[in-house]
């Protein structure tokens, strides 16, 4: 069984973790074109190479990110989400009072 290092709990069997999908920055839901939005929600690159993934240590419900090479299945590093998400995110009020 594979090992994964949780930034909070240290190295554990992969069975202690929940996979949270690849990390992709969300386009602005107000301005993104339908195509861009559909690609964000539905399309996945399935990239052969280094990807960033969400992982959650299930017992402590701690979410973090991992850089993993999908060819070798080697996890290059894991890090706290705050490394990418440093500031509070806010969304603008919809224009015209109604969303498109």
């Amino acid at each position: 069984m594979k090992l994964l290092t949780c930034p909070l709990n240290g190295q554990r069997n992969i069975s202690e973790f929940t996979y949270g999908g690849e990390y992709h920055p969300m386009p602005d839901p107000e301005t993104a074109s339908p195509r861009q939005w559909a690609e964000y929600v539905f399309f996945h690159d399935n990239e052969a190479g280094v990807v960033i993934e969400w992982w959650c240590h299930t017992a402590s419900s701690f979410w973090f990110l991992a850089e993993r090479n999908t060819i070798t299945d080697r996890v290059i590093r894991t890090f706290e989400a705050s490394e990418i998400f440093q500031n509070r995110i806010d969304f603008a009020e919809p224009t015209n009072g109604e969303k498109k």
């Binding site: 949270g20 959650c56 419900s61 979410w63 989400a81 705050s82 998400f85 995110i89």
Partner: peptide
């Protein structure tokens, strides 16, 4: 649901 809430707030960073 709980996990998903935490995942979103790891991004939104709401108080």
């Amino acid at each position: 649901v709980y996990q998903t809430m935490l995942k979103w707030n790891a991004q939104w960073r709401l108080d």
